[in-house]
């Protein structure tokens, strides 16, 4: 039986009428990302069939319109993430910390992608070096890239000079989450806080970012993302003042 079928590699090279795409693993059909065992000759000739949806690695990074993720699908995934994490932690703080870590991993990627999408086409690509413009770009561009809408407000703490807040009236990732009364201090937006922390780190503004429930009558899901900047950032901002 093993000899009846031609070796996948040869089927690609010799007979284009054979349905070669089915023989290929997703990785080897990519022109840019070959699996380690696949010889380069294999990847060189494989072109994606018309009509077949290209491998995720082959899609354009700049196409955002058709590559949005279904919100219900994400809601189910995030629900499972929270359940999975909750089984492996010892308390609310631990759970928030783990969600933050997961968000951080997303944030590093989002930051790279955002920089690519926003600045690649620009004549004079730039990156924010001052804190307030950086915060504005998180409020507007990061939120738009991740949630499809800008955040609702930015606030500066009155008491502490190193604290800033980003406010989302109805965070889409926690829209369907209703936290039981005995865990009422838990905010699943810690995941978002992790994303923000990663982007701030990437921009060179190390900070501790946490999420807090700040519901109002009108917005029961209102969430505040609290940014506590490291002292080095404040010192630099002071030094950069014109």
């Amino acid at each position: 039986m093993a000899f009846a079928q031609p070796h996948p590699r040869f089927s690609v090279l010799s007979a284009s009428s054979l349905s070669s795409a089915e023989h290929l693993s997703p990785g080897s059909s990519s022109a840019r990302f070959s699996v380690p065992s696949a010889p380069s000759i294999n990847t060189a000739v494989s072109t994606p069939k018309p009509g077949l949806r290209p491998n995720i690695y082959d899609r354009s990074l700049n196409k955002t319109r058709a590559s949005e993720v279904s919100a219900p699908a994400f809601a189910f995934l995030f629900s499972e993430i929270v359940q999975y994490t909750q089984k492996r932690v010892s308390g609310i703080n631990d759970l928030e910390r783990r969600l933050n870590t997961l968000g951080y991993r997303v944030g590093t990627r989002v930051f790279e992608l955002m920089a690519w999408r926003n600045e690649a086409a620009a004549k004079a690509p730039k990156r924010e070096t001052r804190f307030l413009p950086a915060l504005m770009s998180i409020h507007t561009q990061l939120w738009r890239a991740v949630f499809g809408k800008p955040a609702d407000a930015i606030e500066k703490s009155v008491e502490n000079a190193d604290e800033y807040m980003i406010i989302d009236n109805d965070p889409s990732i926690t829209r369907y989450i209703s936290v039981p009364r005995d865990m009422s201090s838990l905010s699943c937006s810690s995941f978002t806080a992790g994303i923000v922390e990663a982007v701030l780190d990437g921009l060179g503004f190390p900070a501790r970012v946490t999420a807090h429930n700040t519901p109002t009558d009108q917005f029961p899901g209102r969430t505040t993302i609290l940014i506590k900047l490291e002292k080095s950032v404040l010192d630099r901002e002071e030094a950069l003042k014109p």
């Binding site: 369907y176 989450i177 699943c188």
Partner: peptide, 9 residues
């Protein structure tokens, strides 16, 4: 489906 099934708790 929204409020109950998507709620991790």
């Amino acid at each position: 489906a929204d409020a109950v099934m998507k709620n991790p708790f």
